Computed example of a mutant assay.
Amino acid sequence: MTTSTRTVPNVNAAAIATFFVFGMNGLVFASWAARIPAVTEALSLTSGQMGSLLLCTAVGSLLALPTAGWVVGRIGTANTVRTAGAVAAAAGVGIAVALMAASVPVMAVSLFFFGIGIGLWDVAQNIEGADVEHRLRRTIMPQFHAAFSGGAFVGALIGAGLSHLGVGLPEHLLVIAGIALVLALTAPRYFLPHAPVVEVSDGGTDVKRGPSAWRDGRTLLIGVVVLGATLTEGAGNDWIAKAAVDGLGTSEGGGALLFALFVTGMTLMRFLGGKVIDKFGRVAVLRASMAAAAVGLVLFVLADNVVLAGAGATLWGVGAALAFPMGMSAAADDRKHAAARVSVVSTIGYVAFLAGPPLLGYLGDHTGIHNALLAIGAPILVALLLAGVAKPLPATQEK
Rank of each mutant, 00 (worst) to 15 (best):
L192V: 05
R137N: 15
T67L: 13
A311K: 11
T367V: 15
P170C: 14
R137C: 15
K279C: 03
Q397M: 13
H194C: 10
A235G: 13
S201P: 05
A91M: 03
P325M: 13
S201E: 14
W32H: 03
V197P: 04
G217N: 01
V11H: 10
V175D: 11
R6Y: 03
H145N: 01
T80Q: 00
T18R: 05
Q397C: 10
A68H: 04
V307H: 00
A156F: 04
F19C: 03
P196S: 05
F153K: 00
V301K: 06
G281A: 08
G76E: 09
G228S: 01
A187E: 15
D365P: 09
Q125P: 03
D334H: 08
L302T: 12
A96P: 07
G94P: 03
N25K: 00
G23R: 09
A320D: 08
G361C: 14
L173C: 08
T40W: 06
M24T: 14
R35I: 12
D278W: 02
R215I: 14
V28W: 10
L315R: 01
F148T: 10
A98R: 11
W121P: 00
D334A: 14
W316S: 07
K391T: 05
A14H: 02
P66N: 00
S149A: 13
G247Y: 09
W32V: 10
T7P: 02
A309N: 02
H172W: 12
G73V: 08
W316R: 01
D206C: 06
M107C: 13
L62M: 05
A395W: 08
T347G: 02
V71M: 06
V301A: 08
M328S: 03
A98T: 13
L62P: 08
D131G: 08
L393K: 06
I369C: 10
S149Y: 09
S44I: 11
C56L: 15
P142C: 05
R135T: 06
